[in-house]
């Protein structure tokens, strides 16, 4: 089956997953944000090279991996010790080689990283199935640790509304993770 690209949904569907993936590798929020943005923009430019062999997320992740590699290569070359090896040639157009699922040389320990990635993927997948507002409230409270009253003010909801959304989000997430992870 050939996969298709639908860039209109990319931010909503994949931004959190890609951000989670990036921050675990660069440990810096601002850099992670920039790399995710660069990834989406590079992907737009590389759409013509998409062969449909990988799904959208795999393809975007492969572009991101290359961005992370480039980031470290730049840092290393700034320090005068470019030691990063990549297995693609510069002549290859961006996007064409990406479906080869290039191994990430910055993987910490392959197994830990893989488990974290799968978990991140499972959680973000489950979150993407939630109602948008519930997902937003849950992320703000649980992942970003924002105070309840700040969230209520920002989203213009009452505290009881907030707790109802949290409850629904938690119940749905627990069920979803039970099916796909536990």
């Amino acid at each position: 089956m050939k996969h298709k690209l639908n860039p209109n949904n990319w931010i909503q569907l994949y931004s959190d997953y890609l951000f989670n993936y990036t921050i675990s590798r660069v440990n810096d929020r601002e850099i992670a944000k920039d790399l995710v943005q660069e990834t989406f923009l590079a992907a737009l430019g590389a759409m013509k090279n998409f062969k449909g062999e990988a799904n959208e997320r795999t393809w975007l992740t492969a572009i991101l991996k290359r961005k992370v590699i480039d980031y470290y290569r730049k840092i290393n070359s700034n320090k005068g010790k470019a030691e990063v090896r990549i297995n693609s040639s510069e002549e290859e157009s961006e996007g064409a080689w990406l479906e080869n699922k290039v191994a990430d040389p910055f993987d910490k320990t392959a197994e830990d990283q893989m488990e974290n990635e799968e978990l991140g993927l499972a959680i973000h997948n489950c979150l993407s199935k939630l109602n948008t507002k519930q997902a937003e409230v849950f992320k703000m409270k649980t992942i970003l640790n924002i105070e309840t009253d700040v969230i209520c003010n920002e989203l213009n909801i009452t505290a009881s509304n907030f707790w109802v959304m949290i409850h629904r989000a938690r119940t749905a997430l627990a069920e979803c993770l039970e099916k796909h992870w536990y």
């Binding site: 931010i11 959190d16 921050i23 943005q37 973000h124 992942i143």
Partner: peptide, 17 residues
């Protein structure tokens, strides 16, 4: 250690995109 973008960060990203 699950991470995600803040609402304003996602909006900014969406706008640029």
């Amino acid at each position: 250690k699950i991470e995600c973008l803040k609402q304003n960060e996602r909006k900014q990203l969406q706008k640029t995109f």
